[in-house]
Design a protein around this nucleic acid. Structure first.
Lengths: 340, 340
DNA sequence: CTGAAAGCGCTTACAG
DNA sequence: CTGAAAGCGCTTACAG
């Protein structure tokens, strides 16, 4: 591989001149610049990333830490990752994807070794053990997901509380008075997934205000357990006319369940989910849903992160906690309840 | 951050001694080693990755290039990616995930700049434009997926031809004489996805040998098109008693279709899919299927890649093309056809 | 067993 | 406008 020394020799200039001609960081005569660019072109010169990182203290790489817990719903994760990698690339950064189980160790490794200029964390737990490490790291960090303590980091998440209220209000307005809410499995909550109870508690509160009965239960993340659970719920609450689903696996399993029971949606049962458009399209889900916008959240986190990475001034700004307003995408799976 | 110079000073030795004590690459007296390790510990010393890469010409990072084409089935990709990242980490490597649309450009960037020690390519096309770049690169490369020309690279893929034969044989043995095969959409084939016709052609050939009628059609990758397609097929071939599904989206949409038509599986229709166990569990798919083993394929590719990266001798070995034998996971979705 | 020095390939003050 | 030199933080022959 050609080095900057090769380019300089080929162009008949010093290495520093070659470097400046390529970077444009100081004025260079047209003639010399032309020769340097031609030499670089001819030798297919590409700067060595390690050498540049060492000299500039910038790697142009962002770390992306994702946790894949046993028994969690992996497919939805892909959209968050793509939101991050694609936005990073647009801004001139590559992405180091770290998926190992020990997130604390992983985070320490990539920050201490200076492999990355900044870090995005996915799957934030309420009391996430990675956060103290990230706060202490020299690189800035951004979270997709709301932890208990947001200090020292930029945080981006869907407004799950508003999502819960929107779901309840929508069905209440249509005339529903008894609803079921299926959340993620209990172990997701135990692990610290605050979004589960943020949505649930807000939905319960709003239901109380509106005089709506809301049965809120934990779900399952896999078949056949999730199918059994849905059947059990529909058996247990025969008067319920609306179903809220804050659980991708349950949403994916629901069509089979309703077909098997001969339930028509929305005539017999109104349904509102919470997932991404991508997810809905891929898995044939015909339900109106709160768009979870994983790509947008990933993109927002990266943009803010890169701002802090690249600007001293930005790094001094106060940290932000930004909630994306939930948007209800209507696919016609809700209607007024049938008179009984 | 502490440098090796800080550690050396703290331990009262030279930088080279500190380096050797840490790496163990030459004998060091117990006393000195103890002091160095203590100093490194006390200063929380972690080597600077860029500096090490520059000195050793090894980054301990692998590149993973994935292509996400418009209208393709993204969720299945996650398992391949996890297979790669987790195996890489086990072997001491981090993973740079590159997802930009222009794969040629991306590959050139990461190899020319020496950001990675080796590269794994996903979504291999029959005539993949990235392959010439990878062959010419100084780093070794491994493919998950079979291209037209395997020269100069290690290749790993499911044996899709054998998969087609296993599917046909299994149903033939049960007494089926008319089958439908739903493949990926035509544009996946046009883009170069050879595995589609590898499975199909082998299935057609085997069906011919066995005297089985096989209707092979392209599928769709999204709803509602895929649901319509499945209904259309079942209408068009009412005498078919078995369905082979080499298309994740079609498999995911099938339960709704069979329920809606009042078809029982396997009594009225035997079904065999081709996807991963992870996929089956997540999406409630009750069908016997050929396990596509994305995690195993990713792991195989990484192991071979790292062998070549780390050993001169391994780099001189002939390139391999390794096919994973398809395994039929029986979930009871096939049975002898009902007498008509 | 240990140290002083060179070198990896860049960038960027410092001089002119 | 251009060049010679220092330095980023490591590793590893070269000497002793």
């Amino acid at each position: 591989m050609a080095t900057i020394g090769d380019v300089a020799r080929e162009a008949g200039v010093s290495r520093s001149t070659a470097s400046y001609a390529l970077s444009g960081k100081r004025p260079i005569s047209d003639e010399v610049r032309r020769r340097v660019l031609a030499a670089a072109e001819a030798l297919a010169y590409t700067p060595n990333a390690g050498a540049r990182a060492l000299a500039t203290a910038q790697t142009k790489v962002l770390g992306l830490l994702a946790q894949f817990h046993e028994d969690e719903f992996a497919p939805a994760m892909m959209q968050y990752i793509l939101g991050v990698t694609n936005t990073a690339r647009d801004l001139g950064y590559d992405t180091l994807l770290v998926t190992e189980a020990d997130g604390v160790r992983a985070l320490r490794r990539v920050t201490d070794s200076r492999m990355v200029d900044g870090v995005v964390l996915l799957n934030i737990a309420q009391d996430d053990a990675r956060l103290p490490i990230l706060r202490a790291a020299p690189q800035p960090g951004a979270l997709v997901g709301l932890p208990g303590d947001c200090s020292g980091l930029d945080v981006f998440d869907l407004d799950f509380e508003e999502a819960g209220r929107v779901m309840v209000d929508h069905l209440h307005r249509l005339g529903h008075r008894e609803l079921i809410l299926v959340s993620q499995p209990e172990h997701v909550v135990e692990r610290g997934g605050a979004y589960v109870w943020r949505l649930r508690d807000a939905a319960l509160e709003r239901a109380r205000q509106r005089g709506v009965t809301l049965h809120a239960v934990y779900g399952e993340s896999r078949q056949p357990a999730v199918g059994r659970l849905l059947n059990g719920l529909l058996d247990a609450y025969p008067a319920a006319t609306g179903l809220l689903v804050n659980n991708e696996a349950a949403a994916a399993a629901l069509p089979s369940v309703t077909y098997a029971r001969g339930l028509r949606v929305p005539e017999d049962l109104s349904v509102i989910g919470r997932y991404s458009a991508e997810f809905a399209a891929t898995f044939s889900l015909p339900y109106s849903h709160i768009e979870s916008a994983p790509d947008r959240l990933g993109a927002m986190a990266v943009r803010q992160l890169v701002r802090r990475v690249e600007s001293e001034a930005a790094r001094a700004e106060p940290f932000v906690v930004r909630f994306l307003s939930p948007e209800l995408v209507s696919l016609g799976s809700t209607a007024p309840p049938l008179p009984r």
